[in-house]
Amino acid sequence: MHTMKRWNIDILLSEESEGDTARTWAEAGLSSEDGSALHGHGMARKHPLDLDVPEIGEELAVSRALADLSRQLRQVAAEDIAESTGTPWTQ
């Protein structure tokens, strides 16, 4: 038997700049078919002396949001394993 599922991750980016500094926030949202959802968050800050390259802040913020989402998903899996087996999962 072969099954296939698609999981989609939505990325929302927001940037705020003031003078020579800027902050970029990212939210990575994962929704499953059963209605459950997880949201990872990340932020990047531009130092006043850094070149103004918004893509770098976006990349850093998104990577941090995805890392946060990954951590949360791993925790859900660990809880599901413990519930299914009665034995805590050790990473």
Score class of each variant (00 low, 15 high):
Ala37Glu: 13
Trp25Ala: 05
Leu51Arg: 14
Ala28Asp: 03
Ala37Met: 10
Thr24Cys: 15
His47Leu: 11
Ala22Trp: 03
Gln75Lys: 11
Pro54His: 01
Glu16Met: 06
Arg71Cys: 04
Ile11Gly: 03
Gly42Ala: 03
Glu83Asp: 12
Leu51Asn: 10
Ala78Phe: 01
Glu15Asn: 04
Arg6Met: 06
Leu51Val: 07
Ser17Lys: 15
Lys5Trp: 00
Ser70Asp: 12
Arg64Trp: 04
Pro54Ala: 01
Lys46Glu: 01
Asp80Trp: 02
Asp20Cys: 01
Arg74Gly: 04
Lys46Cys: 02
Leu13His: 01
Trp25Tyr: 12
Ser14Thr: 05
Gly35Phe: 08
Met43His: 00
Leu30Asp: 02
Asp10Gly: 07
Arg71Thr: 13
Asp80Tyr: 00
His39Lys: 15
Asp68Phe: 10
Val62Pro: 01
His47Arg: 12
Arg6Tyr: 04
Ala78Gly: 09
Glu83Val: 01
Pro88Gln: 11
Asp68Arg: 07
Gly42His: 02
Gly19Phe: 08
Ser32Trp: 09
His47Gln: 14
Met4Gln: 14
Trp89Leu: 15
Gly40Ile: 05
Pro48Glu: 05
Trp25Ile: 00
Leu69Thr: 06
Arg64Glu: 14
Asp34Gln: 07
Ser14Tyr: 00
Trp7Thr: 14
Asp10Pro: 00
Asp80Ile: 04
Ala61Leu: 05
Arg74Ala: 15
Ala67Pro: 00
Glu27Lys: 11
Gly57Phe: 02
Ala78Lys: 05
Leu12Thr: 14
His41Ile: 09
Val62Ser: 02
Glu15Ser: 14
Lys5Arg: 10
Glu83Phe: 07
Val62Leu: 02
Asp50Leu: 00
Glu55Gln: 13
Glu58His: 13
Ile9Ser: 05
Ser84Val: 00
Leu12Gly: 04
Leu69Met: 07
Asp50Trp: 01
Ser63Lys: 10
Leu69Phe: 05
Leu66Asp: 04
